[in-house]
Amino acid sequence: MEDPEKKTEVVLLACGSFNPITNMHLRLFELAKDYFHETGKYKVIKGIISPVGDAYKKKGLISADHRVAMAKLATENSDWVEVDDWESSQSEWLETLKVLRYHQQKLVSPDPTNSLQNAIPVTKAGRKRKQEPNRHEPIKKKNQSPDIKSAPQLKLLCGSDMLESFGIPNLWKLEDITEIVENHGLVCISRAGSNVQKFIYESDILWRHKNNIHLVEEWITNDISSTKIRRALRRGQSIRYLVPDAVQAYIEKHNLYSPESEDRNAGVVLAPLQKNARDSKN
C-alpha cells in the first residue's frame, strides 16, 4: 500500500449560477473525486459550491439567498461537498479568479478575517521557472513557511461548457485564464465525443498548461441543465429525481420559477461583459 500521506490534497471549487442546483452539478463533484482518487496521487478532501452573486445579471437569475439555500439543501446528504456564500454576498460581481484566490488563501490560513484584500495571487516568485510538463506538484513558494507547502490545491471544477466559454469574447480576461490554469488548475467533466480536447488544442494558453487541466470523461450522459429544469417548472412538468427532493420542495414552497422570474435581467448585459468591455477600452 502507498502511504496515503504522500498524496496531494485537493479541494474542488465549482462556480456558477446554480439556478437551481441539479443532480448534474452534484455528479460533477462525484466524478471528479473518483478521477483523482484513481490516479493514486491525489486525495480530494473537500468540494465547495460557490453560487454567483446577483450582480452577475444573468437572465432569469433569481436571488442568491434562494440559490444558496437550495444548494445547502442539496448538499445536506453529502459528507464532503459544502456551500460557500462568500462570493454571492459580495456587493459586486467578482471574477472567478478572485473567488479562487480567496478560497486558496483561506486554505492556507483559515482566518475568518480573510477578505478580498488578502486574496492575492498564490504564486509570483517562481513564475518564471521552466515549465515542467507531466508533473503535478503542489504549489511551492520559496519564501513561505513549510506548512504552506502542504496546503491543499484548489482546483476549479467545471463542465465542458465553462471551458468552452473561455472562447467567448470579453467574458474572461486572458490573464485570468492564464492564472487559473497556471496556479490552480482545472477539472473539466466532459462527455464522450465532446470537442473539449480540440478546444484545448486550439488555445495556446490552455495547450501550454494542459498538464494542469484534468479531463474527466463522464460514463453516464448527464445533461440536467438548470435551464431545462426551469423550463419544465414553467410548464408544470415533473422535475422529480433530477434535483434532490428537498430542492424541489423548496422551489414549490417559494414558487421560485415563473415566466416573470425568467424575465429578470432580460436585456441587461452580463456583468463580466460590461466590465471587460469597459476595461479593454481604457
Partner: peptide
C-alpha cells in the same frame, strides 16, 4: 424525453 437519461443498471453495477 427532454433530458438525456441513460442511467443503465449495468453501468451502475460496473461502477
Amino acid at each position: 424525453e427532454w433530458i438525456q437519461n441513460e442511467i443503465s443498471a449495468t453501468q451502475i453495477r460496473y461502477a
